[in-house]
Design a protein around this nucleic acid. Structure first.
Lengths: 250, 250
DNA sequence: CCATCCACTAGACCATCGATCCGGTCACTC
DNA sequence: GAGTGACCGGATCGATGGTCTAGTGGATGG
């Protein structure tokens, strides 16, 4: 009995796209973590076979790279001329989904090394951190080159911002900031440990061995501590910006 | 013909120990990278079966945790009273393999907030970084809690050093420094990319899209840049140490 | 001197994973 | 309406982490 009714309904061409794959991978990662992302499971969620994924993607690492870069897409770039920035959470995901394409090229006047550069950079870094923390699995994946268009665009913007702030060689500044944010996210995700390990209790149990660690390293306010450390970096950078001669390197 | 000569030589009880496993895992990782560490290969190198490893170790992650912590063992702690420190490469692996056990407890006088605290901390952080870079595979693994005895001991020592330097709440300082070092190692290993990807050329090819990045982000001296960024952190910390009221947090 | 016990070892085996082979099927073009 | 290229999936491969079962040797204690 082979007729239209018995035959399985011909599913309309799904037109699976890279975007849909990345979107679903992001959802899967958010819900179940990086350990449970397999090509089969991802394909299943997309109502397709695992083989199909490999037509759009070469390896599983591709999926991870794409999805990691997609996180950075969530980081909204502030308005084109950084001079006209709203203070505070400038870098966080806002409602305006303006075309970011126009952000670059519009370098602010280089002479305007106003003191507000710190607020701008702070906003940027908070945005990076917030986006990554929104997807804690990213911490496990941060060990691969951030060369996706979204990540690069953000990095480029950071360089521009620093250059505009008066850093003639923004290398070390950008490097420090990026490293600090990445490290912070990894550290926090690691120690908050969704994996059930009670790191706090672990340290408390060994308070006799590591007294200083147990006294100060517990119950820390991640957000405040991040901001405080970022403040160290920024004020150190400000010092080198205004007194660029001090190159203490014993 | 079953005699002593034909029978396979009875191998003298290997007495496989955790130390030997970690040692061999470290060698395997150094030679072939984290991707090629499998329990089977590790067992093979130890002239044993993979099952045997599981008697000493519960999971493969245990091996990674142990080996990662073993890296920190390479970081020599400076002499017990930090006051009597040789300047410079204090934290790097030296020849003296003194008993580190005695390092703790001997807190330097808290009033001696001498300016040399920066050199001390700098040496410590350089030591951390150098040890991790000596084993680049660590970058891929740095996303797990550093709760091994060696890592904890170093962290404890960092806390002590900071406390001795006059930081009443060394939280943020230790947090910032650790994150910075971890992030630096990950970033460097990622972009130096043993995996054959020419990140430099990649950026150069896209210089029109990311001009600032291509102009400043290429050919950077990793060591110098690390030191420069570390300098930012330290001078920022110094400022907060001497003027603890400035808590800029918009 | 010998039975016992436990630290320790190995082979076979299992489920699962990333990835590929091969054989299709749809939509569109010429 | 034949052909083409984008797209799809079942079966399968080799490898991996981990377990089950079945031991084996050396030290211990009587």
């Amino acid at each position: 009995m082979d007729n239209v009714w018995s035959r399985p309904r011909r599913t309309p061409r799904q037109t699976l796209t890279l975007d849909r794959i990345v979107e679903e991978a992001m959802a899967l990662l958010d819900e179940e973590g990086v350990g449970r992302l397999t090509m089969r499971r991802l394909a299943e969620r997309l109502n397709t076979g695992s083989t199909t994924l490999y037509w759009h993607v070469k390896t599983k690492d591709d999926v991870l790279d794409l999805t990691l870069d997609a996180i950075f897409r969530e980081v909204r770039l502030p308005a084109p001329p950084p001079a006209g920035l709203a203070r505070g959470e400038a870098g966080l995901a806002g409602t305006a989904s303006r075309d970011v394409e126009r952000a670059r090229g519009g370098l602010p006047r280089a002479g305007s090394g106003d003191a507000d550069w710190q607020a701008r950079v702070r906003g940027l870094m908070r945005g990076w951190r917030a986006a990554l923390l929104r997807h804690p699995w990213s911490a496990t994946i941060l060990d691969r080159p951030l060369m996706g268009p979204n990540a690069l665009e953000r990095t480029e913007f950071l360089y521009e911002t620093l250059t505009a702030a008066g850093f003639t060689a923004p290398n070390a500044a950008a490097y420090s900031l990026s490293n600090y944010v990445m490290g912070s996210v990894i550290m926090q995700v690691t120690w908050e440990g969704r994996n059930g390990t009670d790191t706090g209790g672990f340290l408390r149990d060994r308070a006799d061995r590591y007294p200083a660690l147990a006294e100060h390293g517990l119950d820390l306010d991640w957000d405040a501590t991040f901001d405080e450390g970022l403040g160290y970096l920024l004020s150190g950078m400000e010092q080198s910006r205004t007194h660029p001669s001090q190159d203490a390197r014993p």
